[in-house]
Simulated scan of single mutants.
Amino acid sequence: MPTIEPTPWVDPLPAAAPPAGVATYRLPTGTYVTRAALAVTGGAWRDKRHFAATSVLVRHPRGDLLIDAGFGARVADHVRMLNRMERAPFTLGRTVAQQLDDSGYDRSRLLGVLLTHVHWDHVSGLDSLRVPVWINREEAQYAATDAHGAVYRAVSAGLPIHEYALDGPEYLGFSRSLDIHGDGSVVVALAGGHTSGSVVVFVTLPDGQRYGFIGDLTWQLDGVTRGLERPWLLRRMADVDADAVRSGLRRSSALSSVMRIVPSHDLAAYESIPPLPARFAPADA
């Protein structure tokens, strides 16, 4: 059984000085069902996993970002665009757009949606948000040419694209990075492997709590805590470079000793992140 022995992270963490007002909120938009046997090596076929389709709002005085977009209003159409083997029963909740509007959030604060990668379950909600898409060059090229970019190509049509460069230094073992606000509060690092330009988003809050949003380096927390990779067939189907995914997962497992690691599709991984308030106060909207 392929495993990655988790070892604690021992190096110093990068300096960060997040200003007051930096905060994270979870926006769950629905789930879809996958057998554990298809999620992690050694998983049981009878164990059904409800995969999260959750976006995270990162607030910052210089402008807010959403990490991924969750399910959109037309998610049923998006699922029909998938290969039959990739389709799964799903449940749609409220879209990110609906949740933001219901809370009284001022959407003019949004800089855009920062994608961990362009697969359907991370981009579907772009159909309702209509805000800039943050994507790096490697991922944009993958999205334009790979069959798994079909939903992205449909939902991003007509949207402004903010193509950012990962021209900063190595960050926590990942080769290239971008410090979005220049204060260490939101740092994007190239992971690659799952898709050509897939990224990890590191967020540091004013109280010192750190998060690593690792996209699909693994789908479930088992991958982080037990070092379990995807099954062989799923690695062949889902990843462009299994060795790069393995390397990124090894770093993520180590970092779990010093920060909260959030695989995109594990519901429990989001529990420490508060939901949006029922209503933002006018001064905070």
Rank of each mutant, 00 (worst) to 15 (best):
L13C: 11
P18F: 04
V22K: 04
L27T: 08
G30L: 10
T31M: 03
T41I: 08
V56Y: 05
D68Q: 14
F71D: 08
G72L: 07
R74E: 12
H78V: 00
M81R: 13
M85P: 01
E86H: 12
R87P: 05
Q99I: 03
L100W: 01
G104Q: 04
Y105C: 05
R109V: 01
L110H: 11
L110K: 15
H117E: 15
W120C: 10
D121H: 14
H122R: 14
V123R: 15
V131G: 04
V131N: 05
W134G: 07
I135Q: 04
N136A: 04
Y142M: 02
A143F: 02
T145K: 13
H148T: 07
D167S: 13
D167T: 13
G168T: 13
G168P: 13
S177R: 10
H181D: 10
G182V: 02
S185P: 11
V188Q: 12
L190T: 05
L190F: 07
G192S: 09
V200Q: 04
V201L: 00
Q209E: 13
I214W: 02
I214L: 08
G215T: 05
R235D: 07
A242H: 05
S247H: 10
G248C: 10
R251I: 08
A268R: 12
L276T: 10
R279K: 15
